[in-house]
Nucleic acid binder design. Structure first.
Lengths: 345, 345
DNA sequence: GGCATGAATGTGACCGGTCACACAAGCAGG
DNA sequence: CCTGCTTGTGTGACCGGTCACATTCATGCC
């Protein structure tokens, strides 16, 4: 007992039962709002609960009931805008369903490291959501043992290994197609592409959409420039592209890459959009405030996260039948960074 | 049994025991690497484990052992750079100690909402880390029931309610002081400040550091302009400041605010740093790639997160005595956005 | 040979809940 | 008055592990 007269260590339902002079089962009934408890008894029990500062152990509850009510999200990253927004969406939905959200970061794509992390997540007992936008995530999704409820957030459903599981996605191919069309329609002869790292060795969805638009327009198809996730990679790529006077339009795999590209163009003295147009991807919060403001493709990552959780939730509680594969539709937001090519007069 | 001959539902240690013809206790010993198990027995048990696809239930383990090995992080935000980096640091350290990391988002600072979220986190059983950079977080930290191991990531230790608990922090006051000194030493008459939302009603650490530097230099002390967390708030604040021709130096509470301010200055036709210098805070990844690149105060948020977990870890496993209050030292990174004021000749 | 010692293994209770079922009391209908 | 159903409550087993202790057997030492 401490100063206030409460026991300092957690009380169990049997302690409460003793204090209220009922059986532990009755306490359980009160906690769970079971109807057939006499009001006067309920009062006594509630008073005892208050008195002892009882809180039901989530662990014991999970063990006894079999229901775990938790999601573990496996992701390679939590600082980049897209990933973080997905997490936010999942958390929102999870909280609403009073689920707990845990996060496991896949630090490397190394086979044993991924396997270990997947094991840990699987052992936790709840459901899994795997963000498979990168090699580590893809491998993790494939490694999830059978029998564990899992939803993948994938780049391209059909091509992803382990794609037989429920998934959510945004139509990146279509989005890249639109963005490329936008630039071509402004009069650019072709569009260069700075790619984010792909989830698999096969052609990434964004790359595919970009290429399709070029092909359809009969435009030249330059080799995509490989970037990273952050602005540094964009900067490196941008320096190469800036040196090529023929380049007038650049599509970037995300807004951070676009930032790096813009910086490189600026240093090379090539005005945006006067000489070169730049289009980003994801419409991160800062895109609108850059100078020039960045044309980008808006993605509803938060909604994607919510959808992923919804799917998982349906999977776990058999009751709710699951709407199979929600798709969110990206939207092109045109700003200052894209315009017509310089007149070659 | 499924096609492969394995049971599809999880096997318990008693199942394994039966298969290996030993007692469940022996299985437990093998799992936990207890020394006194005959090698041949160990072999049999391991074979049975493999055969049945046994994985130890984290839930049951936690219940029986009393040790939970999990941290729940309560935070108002996960998308902003600082918060996300702290989370990353915590996750890193947690994973290394094979702890699980859960996240609870404090969506509003509303009293009952916060209380509910804190309850959920407390019920989970493990330790807690509360990021108390904002009113929601501060309230949450204060609401954590006694007896639950908790570490606060705070703005200013002494002033934070619930500050009797272990905490970590970075010296924001000192950092703001340095940044302001930098601008003053370039020759600016005074420095204006666009503030992030404060964690309490009392003067925020960054504001205090800025003010101290001004006072020390005998400079005028303009009212700080209240901002938000994102670039939109900076933009609004920036428009006001841009309209005032006397403004030549602006310190911003974070890099997103600085971005918005820079945009507003640009739109108002006031060159940076030619007419106005801008300094940010936190050194987010994009700061270096903006045009002009942004002078900012680098913060080791990841290290801060690791330290927070370290503290909590020591708290939970009594064994390790706890180094009380780690402090990380911010560092000013000077870039293009800050320079001497326009000559007033 | 007798006995303490340690290695290898098993038994029962317990962690804090839930679940299935039993049981007493109250009240209806035939 | 007896049967049958509902309401309110209690009992024992169980979820899947761990812990403390008991047991067996081989070995070392006097």
């Amino acid at each position: 007992m401490n100063v206030t007269g409460h026991t300092s260590r957690t009380a169990s339902i049997r302690d409460v039962a003793a204090a209220a002079d009922v059986s532990y089962q009755t306490v359980s009934r009160v906690i769970n709002g079971h109807p057939s408890v006499k009001p006067s008894t309920r009062e006594r029990v509630l008073a005892a609960i208050e008195e002892l500062g009882f809180r039901r152990s989530a662990t014991a509850h999970a063990l006894a009931s079999g229901r775990v009510r938790s999601v573990t999200v496996l992701t390679a990253n939590i600082t980049h805008h897209g990933y973080a927004s997905i997490l936010q969406g999942i958390e929102e939905a999870a909280r609403a369903a009073s689920y707990t959200m845990a996060i496991g970061v896949l630090e490397s794509a190394d086979e044993t490291a991924v396997r270990a992390e997947v094991q840990r997540a699987a052992d936790a007992g709840g459901g899994l959501i795997v963000i498979a936008y990168d090699p580590a995530g893809v491998r993790a999704l494939a490694d999830v043992p059978a029998g564990i409820p899992v939803v993948g957030v994938v780049e391209t459903p059909a091509r992803t290994p382990g794609g037989d599981r429920p998934w959510v996605w945004t139509d990146d191919r279509e989005a890249a197609y639109e963005a490329t069309r936008h630039l071509l329609s402004l009069g650019h002869e072709t569009v260069h592409y700075v790619a984010i790292p792909s989830s698999t060795r096969r052609t990434a969805a964004r790359t595919a959409g970009w290429r399709a638009a070029l092909r359809e327009a009969g435009a030249a198809e330059p080799r995509p420039v490989q970037g990273t996730w952050g602005p540094a990679g964009g900067y490196t790529a941008g320096r190469k592209l800036a040196a090529d006077a023929a380049v007038t339009a650049i599509l970037c795999g995300n807004d951070d890459l676009a930032l790096g590209v813009m910086r490189a163009l600026h240093e090379a003295g090539r005005p945006i959009p006067g000489e070169v147009s730049v289009v980003g991807f994801d419409d991160a919060p800062h895109a609108a405030y850059l100078t020039p403001s960045l044309t980008s493709v808006r993605q509803d990552f938060t909604g994607l996260g919510r959808a992923a959780f919804g799917l998982l939730h349906g999977l776990v509680e058999q009751s709710a039948p699951v709407a199979p594969h929600p798709v969110s539709v990206p939207e092109l937001v045109v700003r200052e960074s894209s315009g017509p090519p310089p007149s070659t007069a």
